[in-house]
Nucleic acid binder design. Structure first.
Lengths: 223, 223
DNA sequence: CCGCGCTTGTCAGCGCGCTGTCAGACGGGG
DNA sequence: CCCCGTCTGACAGCGCGCTGACAAGCGCGG
């Protein structure tokens, strides 16, 4: 997920970059209002952290222009001047959340996460194929609504198949994904994992294409 | 909604009455500390606006006495002496918000509205999952309504899990949140904290997802 | 400034269960 | 019928997470 952090104070910018980066975001820093407006208008960010006090173009103006142009990405506004008026102005201009300085980085990250989650339309983080349902937030698997206990490795295998459910995933690719190419395992290790999963999920869930690899049964209708 | 305005300066008191009244509050004025304490302790207000400089009884003392008696209505503190120390004192004494004089009436009304809204929702202050309840204002934890003593570190861990209660929080993320990436601790430090928390909260509160991380037991139906 | 107690990181040990390996069975394709 | 890829049950090793003990750190009060 790409994040644009608009902040002219280099120390705060560096902290932002570190904290958001550690939280798994791909952070881009921008210190100028003009540039921020251009980037936000042309690039595609999952979130923008916007300081109001900026050289070049005022943060509120930038935000208003984005919204006027129909840009709908979530924007988290930072400001040193934590007056109520500014808060109202910021929210009126289209900010999705507001954080007065000084703040703790943990809080910013938490709010950033919340914003992203919300903007994803709480994109359910739930995927399904056939009778299988996989909740990537809770890291749980259910079969026809019944929760199924899975180990870490089994879950990762299932998640990868689910991610690529439209195609047959070669054994070699699965091996590489599960273990990394550094420490290689025999193909049989993978087969063992598949076998254990099949015992839990039923034989039909994971299908084998002999000589190629595995794929999830899409399960729409019966063939 | 009844509001008590404690303010000895007649001009400000009159302005308060006008502004809050126009905002839809039923305003009662009180100019004396003793009387304020009595009213706040016996009557039921949705909000109290409290000036610190008072004849009779000091505003901070009044506030502390209310809190000591378990009165939990939101209190917005006004003070001419806008020093940081006083602000800390006020918040320590149990103030919910703070406004240094001079201020514009619009801002006061806005903050008053915010306080009322927050105290009505209270959602921002208290979160719960399963049998656990966490008050982020008072930094307290309770289990089935029974208060539980937690250390600072334990509280921060719990609060973070609570904030992310919809998902499994990876060990690495928790480590980073608790300690920062600069001074790394072993994973075992985290496990030790979890163990101590489990001793206090019962084994079921914090669940382990082996190979991934921890998450709070949502119990049955939250949110 | 000293001493006390609470907090907290580290260490070592331990037990469970995950997981890779092996051997043998199975079965599809030629 | 044979070959080879895949499946499966058994088994053993060990890695992960849990726990109790301990000491250093730190704040706090005297």
């Amino acid at each position: 997920m790409r994040v644009l952090a608009v902040e002219d104070d280099p120390r705060i910018a560096s902290d932002l970059s570190a904290a958001l980066g550690a939280a798994g975001f791909r952070v881009e820093i921008c210190t100028d209002g003009e540039e921020a407006w251009f980037l936000g208008d042309t690039e595609d960010y999952g979130l923008i952290v916007l300081d109001l006090g900026l050289p070049g173009l005022d943060g509120l103006t930038v935000l208003k222009r984005w919204r006027a142009n129909g840009r709908e990405m979530p924007v988290l506004v930072l400001t040193a001047r934590g007056t109520w008026n500014e808060r109202v102005e910021g929210i009126d201009a289209g900010a999705d959340d507001y954080l007065p300085k000084p703040f703790r980085m943990e809080e910013l990250v938490a709010r950033a996460r919340a914003l992203v989650r919300r903007s994803a339309g709480q994109a359910s983080a739930v995927q399904s194929a056939g009778d299988l349902t996989l909740d990537t937030n809770r890291m749980t698997v259910s079969l026809r609504g019944v929760p199924v206990d899975t180990t870490a490795l089994e879950y990762r295998l299932l998640a990868y198949l689910m991610l690529n459910r439209s195609r047959v995933v070669p054994q070699t690719e699965l091996l590489e994904h599960l273990y990394g190419d550094d420490d290689a395992r025999e193909a049989n290790a993978l087969e063992a994992v598949v076998a254990r999963l099949r015992r839990k999920l039923g034989a039909g869930a994971i299908q084998t294409r002999r000589g190629f690899g595995y794929f999830l049964d899409a399960g729409d209708g019966d063939r």
